[in-house]
């Protein structure tokens, strides 16, 4: 069968060693090899953002990223945002502001929103709109998503 290689990386704060086919994408590795089904497939072409994960602090479309490229890097998926203390402020803001409908886009949307609000503590609504351009949602029309991002900025500022 196809060539496999062993890679080591940090996944949601824990070290992982896994063998993957070299042409496999990170999304497939997460969902099918590691059983982390929070990250979603919705296009496989980088257009929808449902597969967004954080790699070394920046967000990427995991459907485009070769799994082998995870070697030595630090990944955070939607499953890794929550702490034992509960939801992270971005997740909580999304729930509280009614931003979740069918929820299928949400793992990617929330990871991206979390990245944006970490990256720029002064993030404005307009900047959030731009920052979420790569995350398609068919249910919400983004209005409540943007409300939630504004609330997350505020919550992070207050250190909650």
């Amino acid at each position: 069968m196809s060539l496999e290689t062993e890679i080591n990386f940090t996944l949601n704060g824990r070290p992982v060693t896994v063998r993957v086919p070299v042409a496999m994408k990170t999304l497939t590795m997460l969902r099918e090899v590691l059983g982390l089904t929070g990250t979603k497939y919705a296009c496989g072409e980088g257009e929808c953002g449902a597969c967004t994960v954080k790699v070394d602090g920046r967000t990427l479309n995991s459907c485009l990223m070769h799994a082998v490229d995870c070697d030595g890097r630090e990944l955070v998926t939607i499953e890794g945002l929550k702490s034992p203390a509960g939801m992270n402020p971005t997740q909580k803001a999304f729930v509280d502001h009614g931003a979740v409908q069918c929820g299928f886009c949400m793992p990617g949307m929330i990871i991206q929103a979390d990245y944006l609000t970490d990256d720029d503590p002064q993030l404005t609504r307009e900047q959030a709109q731009r920052g979420l351009e790569g995350n398609l949602c068919r249910c919400t029309g983004y209005t409540k998503v943007l409300d939630a991002v504004e609330a997350a900025v505020e919550a992070k500022r207050c250190g909650r």
């Binding site: 070299v22 042409a23 994408k25 496989g44 072409e45 980088g46 479309n61 459907c63 485009l64 990223m65 070769h66 082998v68 490229d69």
Partner: peptide
Amino acid sequence: VFCGGTDLTPQTDSGAKRYGATLMNIR
């Protein structure tokens, strides 16, 4: 060769392009 893979992946997935014998990550 791949770098970000944002062109290569859709092209190989759709069959428009095929991988060579060696896959090289230049990052």
